[in-house]
Nucleic acid binder design. Structure first.
Length: 115
DNA sequence: ATCATGACGTACG
DNA sequence: TCGTACGCCATGA
């Protein structure tokens, strides 16, 4: 669920938890680019990339978080569910991301946070 | 309150 | 290349 508001946080970027912070970073990844669990983790200041995966897994509905643009450091899709993995692949494909077999060339599509 | 569980990355042998 | 250890969140039973 989403219980991030105690009722008085608005203009300040204060997050009740790590997942909210992760979602804000993922929202910055533009169409046509991909990011990795590790990169997102680094940007929110944590060393555990798994937590980024946990955060993505916890998304129940679309909160404007482009979860499909987050893949692993090997350039592959990490979703365990084959169906959803294919969905993710299709979504990336429709955004212009090309696959070489089952992986994406990160040197060509990795998001640069400075952009 | 404890326990299991789940989309990872890096270091090391 | 492969297996293992570690990092240490959020949620539901």
């Amino acid at each position: 669920m989403n219980k991030m508001n105690d009722g008085h946080d608005n203009h300040e970027k204060i997050y009740d938890n790590l997942f909210e912070a992760i979602y804000e970073i993922v929202k910055r990844v533009p169409c046509g680019r991909v990011s990795t669990y590790g990169q997102i983790a680094s940007l929110v200041g944590i060393s555990d990339a798994r937590k980024v995966g946990y955060a993505m897994n916890s998304l129940e509905r679309d909160d404007g978080v482009p979860w499909h643009r987050v893949i692993n450091s090997k350039g592959k899709i990490s979703l365990r569910d084959p169906f959803m993995a294919e969905v993710q692949r299709q979504m990336l494909g429709s955004e212009g991301i090309e696959f070489e077999g089952d992986s994406v060339d990160l040197s060509a599509y990795l998001w640069d946070p400075q952009e």
